[in-house]
Computed example of a mutant assay.
Amino acid sequence: MKISPRIVFMGTPEFAVPSLEKLVEAGYPVVGVVTATDKMGGRGGKQLLESPVKVAAQRLGIPVLQPKNLKDPGFQNELRALNADLQIVVAFRMLPEAVWDMPELGTFNLHGSLLPKYRGAAPINWAVIQGELETGATTFFIRHEIDTGDILQQLRIPIGENDTAGDVHDRMMHDGANLVVDTVRQIEAGDYELRKQDDTAATPAPKLNREMARIDFDRPVREVHNFVRGLSPWPAAWTLLGGEQLKVIRTRVEAARTEGAPGTVVTDGKTQLKVACQDGYLYIHELQLAGRKRMAVEEFLRGVDVAEGTVLG
């Protein structure tokens, strides 16, 4: 009788939850989950926030470990006591060698790109920002340098011309979960071939922040559009309207001869708001003014008077 490998799952955000759920649905014994520590948040910072993976693990009846320090000997002893054959990492943090080298079958990670492209913390975002027509997901065995281990499996995911990073994230969250289960099946059967990454083809995907998200309209309109959708929904590309921060969430492109300087607004004051770029107009469909909710452009224009010829920046 074949005995399935004992698995420890490591992850924190919503992106990782379908992978955990599908492993359990497939009948694999997930003997423990490692996730981020709880934190205080919400209105006034008075609400205890648990990670989505912790909530899912408790619902599934799986023991949860929440170490502050992955190098802590006490945590490592607890992890070792779970006697895992295989560890799986989906959207967690860097592991020390003592952790990733612990199980007999190794530790593999699900990464949101077609490695070696877009190594780093924000692979989905940067693929969209760079105007890629497709991206994908990769499972690979963890080694010392981040996102450099030998590849187990990959799948390709198309990127539509108006897809946001959030759209791609939501598709990859489920397609990647299936890839995780398929990878476990291959490891369980011992039926896989590892492929080394070509470091010369590697591209970076550094962490995002709000400071880098300011829109420069003095660029080709397609580049501006890609920038906006690559930063949507977070941290959200932004500009200034009358000195207030205006987040731009969804856009589309019109290639046309423009009038006025880059950043100049053309609007009917009711349903249409577009902004001049170098070689066309950026139509804004969804946006958010500081202190207000996100809304469609029609709702926004009902409450905010944006004059024709206003310059955003």
Score class of each variant (00 low, 15 high):
234 W>I: 05
180 V>R: 07
157 I>K: 05
229 R>K: 15
3 I>Q: 15
58 Q>W: 02
1 M>F: 13
152 L>C: 03
13 P>Y: 01
300 F>D: 08
237 A>Y: 00
87 Q>S: 14
253 V>A: 04
211 E>S: 07
80 R>P: 03
288 Q>V: 06
143 R>C: 11
251 T>K: 02
241 L>K: 00
200 T>A: 14
312 L>H: 00
6 R>A: 14
192 Y>K: 02
58 Q>A: 09
85 D>V: 08
189 A>W: 02
194 L>C: 13
215 I>H: 00
307 A>N: 09
101 D>K: 15
61 G>L: 04
203 T>E: 01
91 A>K: 03
4 S>K: 15
75 F>L: 09
254 E>D: 13
309 G>N: 11
255 A>Y: 11
307 A>R: 14
127 A>N: 09
100 W>Y: 15
264 T>Y: 07
162 N>C: 06
279 D>W: 04
45 G>T: 03
187 I>Q: 00
113 S>H: 04
218 D>P: 11
86 L>T: 03
7 I>G: 03
239 T>R: 00
267 T>A: 03
5 P>K: 09
302 R>V: 06
164 T>D: 09
261 A>E: 15
244 E>R: 15
255 A>R: 11
113 S>N: 05
129 I>L: 12
143 R>Y: 01
190 G>P: 09
156 R>E: 10
290 A>T: 12
16 A>K: 06
96 P>D: 06
84 A>M: 08
49 L>P: 01
173 M>L: 04
175 D>S: 13
207 K>L: 13
55 V>M: 11
235 P>K: 02
14 E>T: 13
121 A>L: 13
36 A>P: 01
180 V>Q: 02
187 I>P: 02
59 R>H: 14
132 E>R: 13
185 R>L: 05
35 T>Q: 06
46 K>L: 13
245 Q>L: 07
3 I>P: 04
167 D>T: 14
63 P>R: 12
43 R>G: 06
307 A>D: 11
88 I>A: 03
304 V>S: 04
229 R>P: 02
50 E>T: 09
105 L>M: 15
87 Q>R: 10
2 K>M: 14
230 G>K: 03
63 P>H: 12
75 F>A: 11
288 Q>T: 13
211 E>R: 08
222 R>E: 14
311 V>L: 10
182 D>Y: 06
278 Q>W: 05
145 E>H: 12
232 S>E: 04
248 V>H: 01
45 G>H: 01
144 H>V: 12
36 A>K: 10
271 T>F: 14
25 E>Y: 08
216 D>S: 11
11 G>V: 00
37 T>Y: 01
79 L>N: 10
278 Q>M: 09
95 L>A: 05
202 A>M: 12
16 A>W: 02
212 M>V: 08
192 Y>A: 02
182 D>Q: 15
3 I>W: 11
103 P>S: 06
51 S>G: 05
219 R>E: 08
122 A>H: 02
24 V>I: 15
57 A>I: 05
155 L>N: 07
276 A>E: 02
43 R>W: 03
97 E>I: 03
110 L>T: 03
74 G>D: 15
275 V>L: 00
72 D>H: 12
239 T>W: 01
